[in-house]
Computed example of a mutant assay.
Amino acid sequence: MLNDILVHLPVERPAEPVIDCAVSVAKLFGAHLEAIACAYQPINPAIVVGASAAYYADASQYNTNLDKATQRLDQFKATVGAAGLPHDGRTIADSPALANETLSLIGRMYDLNIVAQPDPAHPCNHDGLAEAVLFNSGRPMLLVPYIHAGPLQPNRVLICWDGSRPAARAVHDAMPWLKRAKTIEIVTINEDPDVAGDTSCDALVAHLSRHKLSATTNKFNCDSGKIHSALLSLAADSCADLMVMGGYGHSRLREFILGGVTRGMFKSLTVPTLMAH
């Protein structure tokens, strides 16, 4: 069950997508909802050697102050209070790298972390948080698209399955959602039946059936560089409310160089996605 949820409020851009999503999830599971708003502090150039003045000028323009973080927290409390949900909230302040490390550590004590997707059109200090939480919290993360609006009603769930450890972790963490879903679809891309074996898409269907969950399958092939686009297209075609997937099945370095599925999702996400690593 999800009894204790943490939502990370973006301060440098609108927080409505994650707040609306978090409230609906807390209602669905009857959970306590806590929020953190981070006032990112600029790096002090006096303690860093070799960086240019242009770098610090750029870093400073993204700096937010504690007043803005407090405003976001007040917005959260007003919305959650009106919904009648048990809640709490706080602010922290630190440099981006240290703040994201701290937020990841805090996230370990919750059943779910809710994080806003980075918006490529409006870069900010918050952008590195999703990756930090995914890798370092040890807990499932719900990534909310910056275009999301309104509550999340996870009636139609799409599981992105590749037989990997992160994918298995994600399915396990998604069980409370799957048990409330009306339809479950499993999609696998480029699955080799001679290799998949015990971790095949069909094996996952059998596993879910033992949890009294019925799922359909969708198997197809496509170029490796287009997998994330294919998944998002399928999610749109099937009107999926929630996607479930493992994050970073390969190393971050390999994904950065080759352009992996997780990195593509971070950039192009259109559906709230439960991720685990």
Rank of each mutant, 00 (worst) to 15 (best):
G128T: 05
Y146A: 12
V133S: 08
L204E: 01
E191C: 05
D162P: 11
M141S: 15
G128Q: 05
I186N: 06
A116M: 12
D198P: 09
G197I: 08
D198C: 09
Q153P: 06
V133I: 15
L143D: 06
Q153S: 15
P154W: 03
R139P: 00
P145A: 10
V205F: 04
P140D: 04
D127I: 06
N136Q: 12
L142C: 11
A170C: 11
M175W: 01
G163K: 01
L213R: 08
P140L: 01
P145W: 01
K182L: 10
R180H: 12
L142T: 08
H211C: 07
S200L: 04
I186T: 09
H148L: 00
D173I: 08
H207N: 14
G163W: 00
M141Q: 13
D127A: 10
T217R: 08
P140W: 07
D119P: 09
N113D: 13
M141C: 15
A170P: 10
T217C: 06
E185Y: 12
P193L: 04
P154R: 07
F135V: 05
K212V: 08
A181P: 00
G128Y: 02
V195L: 15
P123C: 10
E185R: 15
D202C: 11
V144E: 09
N155R: 15
L178M: 08
L142P: 10
P120V: 04
V171W: 13
L178P: 00
K182P: 01
L143K: 01
Y110A: 04
P193S: 05
C160H: 09
A206C: 03
P154L: 10
F135H: 07
N136C: 11
R180D: 00
S164G: 03
L204A: 06
N155G: 15
G107Q: 00
P151A: 13
T199V: 15
S137G: 10
Q117D: 02
L143A: 10
Y110Q: 00
S137E: 12
L143I: 14
D111M: 06
A121H: 07
T183Y: 05
I189K: 07
G163V: 03
L142R: 08
P193F: 02
I184W: 01
M175Q: 14
H126L: 12
A174M: 09
I186R: 05
R169F: 05
D173Y: 14
D192Q: 08
R210S: 14
I114Y: 05
V133W: 08
K182Q: 12
N113M: 13
T199R: 14
K182D: 13
G163C: 04
H122E: 13
R169W: 06
A132V: 11
W177G: 02
D162Q: 04
D119Q: 10
Y110D: 03
C201E: 12
E191M: 04
D119H: 07
R139I: 06
R156W: 03
N125E: 12
A174E: 11
L129S: 07
H148E: 03
C201D: 12
R156Y: 04
H122G: 06
A132I: 11
Y110T: 03
L129G: 06
A132M: 14
G138N: 08
P151D: 13
V205I: 12
A181F: 00
H172V: 13
T199H: 13
S164N: 03
P154Y: 05
P118F: 11
